[in-house]
C-alpha cells in the first residue's frame, strides 16, 4: 500500500511523511547506540532520510521499508565512524578515556556502571557492535538482522555470543 503511494508522484510526499513518523525514532536509537552523541545522531538520521528520499526510485520493494532504511542508516553510520576515526587519531597515540566523553555528554543520564557497560560495547569491532546493539537493545530477531546485514543467522549468533563474552570479560576486568 505505502509502496504504491511512494511510486506515485502525487502521493509520494504524504507516504514519505508517514514513513518518517513511523521509523524516525527507531532509526534514531539505532544510530545513537552506535555513535553515542546526540548531535551526531541527529545529523545522521536526517542524512539517512534524505538519502532514502532521493533513492525512492531505486527502491524496488524487494525488502521491507524498515530493512531498506536500516541499510541506509548503517551505511551512513559506518561511514561516519570511519571518518571520525581518521579525524581523531590522537597525536600522542594515547588511548582517550571513552567514559569521560560519554559522562560529559549532556544527554547521558547513566551512572558509572552504565558508562562502563557502554565503554565495553565501544571496545567491540564495529560490525560486532552493530550485531550486539540490534540484538540486545533493539531486540531484533536474528532473521531480521540477517536480512539487513546480509549475514547468515549462524554467523550472527556466533558474533553475538562472542560479543557478550568480550563485554563480560571487560566489565569483570575493569570493575
Amino acid at each position: 500500500m505505502i509502496l504504491e503511494q511512494l511510486k506515485d508522484c502525487t502521493l509520494r510526499n504524504a507516504a514519505f511523511s508517514l514513513i518518517v513518523e513511523r521509523y524516525s525514532k527507531q532509526i534514531y536509537w539505532h544510530i545513537r547506540n552506535m555513535v553515542l552523541s546526540h548531535d551526531d545522531t541527529n545529523d545522521l538520521v536526517q542524512e539517512t532520510f534524505i538519502k532514502a528520499w532521493s533513492g525512492i526510485d531505486s527502491f524496488r520493494g524487494e525488502s521491507q521499508i524498515s530493512t531498506w532504511l536500516y541499510r541506509i542508516a548503517i551505511n551512513e553510520t559506518l561511514a561516519f565512524l570511519k571518518k571520525k576515526q581518521i579525524e581523531t587519531v590522537p597525536l600522542d597515540n594515547e588511548e582517550h578515556d571513552f567514559t569521560d566523553t560519554i559522562e560529559s555528554d549532556a544527554y547521558f543520564c547513566g551512572d558509572k556502571a552504565d558508562a562502563l557497560f557502554r565503554k565495553a560495547i565501544g571496545m567491540l569491532p564495529e560490525k560486532q557492535r552493530l550485531v550486539f546493539n540490534m540484538k540486545y537493545y533493539e531486540e531484533m530477531k536474528y532473521e531480521e538482522i540477517s536480512e539487513i546485514l546480509g549475514t547468515s543467522v549462524g554467523a550472527l549468533k556466533a558474533s553475538y555470543h562472542i560479543a557478550v563474552k568480550k563485554i563480560e570479560t571487560f566489565i569483570k576486568d575493569n570493575n
Binding site: S17, V20, S24, K25, Y28, Q46, I50, Y107, G110, F117
Partner: peptide, 25 residues
C-alpha cells in the same frame, strides 16, 4: 543495563525531528 535507557534526548525532540526531516527533504 537494558531496563533503563542511559541516553536521553531534548524535550519534544522527535516531533521536531520529524518536522526537520520533512523540511530537509
Amino acid at each position: 543495563y537494558k531496563k533503563h535507557s542511559s541516553f536521553t534526548t531534548p524535550d519534544g525532540y522527535f516531533e521536531k525531528l520529524n518536522w526537520e526531516i520533512k523540511e530537509a527533504t
